[in-house]
Amino acid sequence: MNRQMISAVAHGDHPIAAPLADDSVARLLDRALPRGDERLLDLGCGQGAWLERAVRGRPGLRAEGVDIDAAALDRATERFAREGLGGQILLHAGNAREFTPADRFDLVLCVGATHAFGGLLPTLEAARAHLAPGGSVLIGEGFWEREPDERTLEAGFGADEYAGLAGTVDKVTADGWTPVYAHVSSLAEWDDYEWSWTGTLAGWGLDRAGEPDGAAALEAAAAHRDAWLHGYRGTLGFVTLLLRQTPR
């Protein structure tokens, strides 16, 4: 199983690829899309979970997503067609870093996919290039709730990989952005996300006991669960920021 397949399976019961509950997602979208007729771009959209939630109840919204995982986009396209949402959502297969749409967007979204651009600030730089005048960015990023200890670092993180919450916001404001709203994921949201991620993947593996992919899924689920419970639980936080460009 490659990384994309593992992620697709693991997010089967928690399609938002970040520690956010459904009501948190709804509240963020309500803040980010006040009119309901905006143009939205999701950089690293995966199977289009944010796009689907954004267009529901907003018939005037037009949404686009780009992702390198063509198989995930195919599944999303089929799902949108079944649910009558295909006319509002356009998906593009390709590298989000190289995406060059003809139009600009009122909202550019990247939650749980900043690694595709090399981190927070490079993601914001990419988003800036796609924004219409007065547009906003909705971006999700990790931060240290507390200083990472040895167990967190052994789970595969670097001590300087993230800043604290204040330091993260300072980076954003120094880069020319003003936060107009934010949501800090709770420990309960983290736990629900991680139990769903590891549990869904493990269940998939158990259903395929004796098969190579089943064994690989169980191994990946156990490694992720151990890294979370013995490593970064309560140390790694997640903030989703709604940003507008600061006037020069």
Rank of each mutant, 00 (worst) to 15 (best):
G48Q: 13
G48T: 07
F143R: 04
R97P: 00
E83Y: 06
A132E: 05
G60K: 04
I68Y: 05
P133S: 12
L91W: 03
I89W: 12
R56Y: 07
A93W: 02
V66C: 15
H92A: 03
G140A: 09
G112Q: 07
L90G: 14
E78R: 15
G134T: 06
V111W: 04
A116Y: 13
G86R: 10
F105V: 01
D74G: 13
E83G: 09
A49N: 03
P133N: 05
G134D: 06
G118W: 11
A70N: 10
A93E: 10
G118N: 12
D103T: 14
A49M: 06
T100W: 02
L61I: 03
I139V: 15
D69V: 04
D106E: 15
L85D: 09
I89V: 15
L51P: 01
L91E: 03
A76I: 02
A72K: 06
L85H: 07
I139E: 13
D106I: 10
G65C: 13
R58Y: 07
L91C: 10
L109F: 05
V137W: 02
L107C: 08
F99K: 10
I139K: 05
A132R: 12
R128T: 10
A81H: 05
Q88C: 08
T77H: 07
L90M: 08
G119V: 06
V66Q: 12
A54E: 04
L131R: 01
A54N: 09
E52L: 09
E64D: 05
L73R: 04
R128P: 08
V111E: 12
E83L: 14
A116G: 09
P101D: 09
G142C: 15
H92L: 08
L121I: 07
A76G: 02
R62P: 01
R56C: 13
T123S: 15
G94D: 04
F105C: 12
F80N: 01
A113D: 02
D69A: 15
P122V: 08
I89K: 12
H130C: 12
G118C: 03
E83K: 03
G140I: 06
V111R: 02
G86F: 00
D69R: 10
A49T: 07
A126E: 06
A71G: 06
P133Q: 10
T114M: 02
F80A: 07
R62N: 05
G60N: 04
F143Y: 14
L138H: 12
H92N: 11
P133F: 14
I89D: 07
E141P: 07
V55L: 13
F105T: 07
D74T: 11
W50Y: 12
G57W: 03
E98T: 11
E83A: 15
E125M: 12
